[in-house]
Amino acid sequence: MIDNKTFMIAGLIIAIIIGGLAVFLASGDPDGLESAALFVQGDKTLTGPSPEDGDPEAIGAGTFEYEAPLPDYSTGEEGGKAGEIIAVFAGIIIMFILGFGTSKLIASKKKVA
């Protein structure tokens, strides 16, 4: 049995380790939805490899464009692996604070009510 503080620190450390490993070890293959998009476009057989330069989103209508500040968990092309680590770690910290903050806010409001 570990206390709350230890649990949170351990959880955060595990998340950061997973995020760090992801930067170096994650597969570059498209995900399930992108692979399905390549398949229905005829760029890929169902069980065959994905094309190196395939564009899964070519099939979409493209009705809305949004430029994310840290696209694809990176700081952009020139950021390299260091940029990806910064992006993923920033995301993990933001999620931790957001998860803690929103649940704390809701739980504390309840007590007042």
């Binding site: 959880g11 995301g91 957001l98 998860g99």
Partner: peptide, 9 residues
């Protein structure tokens, strides 16, 4: 908090 950070990672 841990689930939010962990699921993201």
């Amino acid at each position: 908090a841990v689930l939010a950070a962990g699921i993201f990672a």
